[in-house]
Design a protein around this nucleic acid. Structure first.
Lengths: 242, 242
DNA sequence: TCGATTATCTAATGCAGATTCACATCAAGG
DNA sequence: CCTTGATGTGAATCTGCATTAGATAATCGA
């Protein structure tokens, strides 16, 4: 009966090490558990990748195993079940997203205007989704197809991430930077949608991430602010009968 | 050996029937869209619904059958295989979307300014996705997870739908209605993303579709137009082909 | 080198779900 | 009624895949 490694691994799944890319190895003692941890991380990474491409139901342990360069049953040494593995990917996906966002926001000057913070958030979201992480893609693409049981933690993280955004938006409102005709929640979702959708169409051939970021920032800033004229001429003959 | 009904039938739902031209039989029994056709449509509708909720790999024929109120093997009387069934759903999804958009655009005055046409497109997309059709939701959510073999037709339709939008956007550019800093393709995708994402978060509890439409229109219009003070450095045209 | 703990493999097991097959049922006409 | 084709069914295959069991390898402290 072998002792399994950190079953419900939460933070620091050694993938933090990979993505942050900060250290090769700093603690001598860390090296020992590092092999096990690294295998676990390899599996998790592979799962994220497969999940992002195949979807929840389409994620086969055999494919995960192949990509992690081991045999499928070995996965059970690190995760109690397929569902647990997937759950962790989904959860880590958004958690990292929020972590990165808060880090970026933390680096800003106290006096930074709300709209500028939103621009930072736009960049953070896009870069994370496009450059860094299959986790984010997996998380974004599969949120809608996950059985409720698996969704809990992810949902909680999603809420937290949403709250950060929400705060930015309300700050912007207070500053008068937001088109007053916009419903805050709807606006929030429109922005997140514009950004999240990028994982569906972007590829390096579509232009540099920098280009995408710049465009998205322009688009979101203007969209949120609204045109001066927007206050008056909103009616498009479409939704007048509220 | 019973004679199967129109194999590659497109006359599926009443709605679909009107949208595209048939390419197979209709000469002998021109007016026979009765029970058989309706059963087929029921299956297709059920498949669209299941597909939109479960994803490609998660779509079980048993669930489709249950929703269509028949037994799973009966599906094979109308569709050669699970994949064919799914393929048709995906394909019809976007085809209808485009059909509706072109219909709406066709109703407009010749002199309608480009930006207003875009507003109509925004409304059309949202209403179709939110109100009318599981097909659209299924199509949107699963485009990224479909095996290439199944993707072909859908992709073709997607391109056509994209071309309609593209035309609207280039017209707006000609009119000087678009922020010149925006890359056309990226802007297009940002808009589609903001709209498509609605299927992930909207529910009647989030507000009326009218509200969503109005907000989206404001957001998109302002976002595309850009605001007057948008000055800076850009090398638009980086990804300007396609 | 030995044994113990850790890590991983190969060969079952068992189920779920697509597809097939061999009959039912049903509607309409003779 | 009885035939015939259109529809549909229930039970039987066949396969893919998660999960388990039972070894074997690798690592390491002594």
């Amino acid at each position: 009966m072998p002792k399994k490694p950190a079953a419900t691994g939460r933070t620091t799944t050694a993938r933090a090490a990979r993505s942050a890319g900060a250290r090769t190895d700093d603690a001598p003692t860390a090296t020992k558990e590092s092999k096990s941890a690294r295998t676990r991380a390899r599996i998790l990474d592979a799962a994220a990748n497969v999940l992002s491409r195949r979807g929840f139901a389409g994620t086969r342990l055999s494919e995960v195993a192949e990509q992690a360069e081991l045999q499928a049953p070995a996965i059970y040494y690190y995760f109690p079940s397929r569902e647990d593995l997937i759950e962790e990917v989904m959860w880590v996906g958004i958690a990292e997203m929020r972590a990165q966002l808060e880090e970026r926001l933390g680096e800003l000057d106290d006096g930074t205007p709300p709209m500028e913070k939103i621009m930072v958030a736009v960049e953070s979201h896009l870069r994370h989704a496009l450059e860094i992480s299959d986790y984010a893609t997996a998380s974004i693409r599969n949120a809608g197809q996950l059985p409720d049981a698996l969704r809990k933690r992810q949902l909680a993280e999603e809420v937290k991430y949403g709250e950060v955004w929400r705060r930015l938006l309300t700050d912007a409102v207070r500053e008068g930077d937001l088109n007053p005709e916009l419903d805050l929640y709807v606006a929030h979702m429109l922005v997140i949608g514009a950004l999240s959708w990028a994982v569906e169409w972007w590829s390096p051939r579509r232009g540099s991430v920098d280009l995408i970021v710049a465009n998205a920032q322009d688009f979101v800033r203007a969209g949120l602010r609204g045109h001066d004229a927007a206050a008056g001429s909103t009616e498009t003959g479409a939704a007048e009968a509220g």
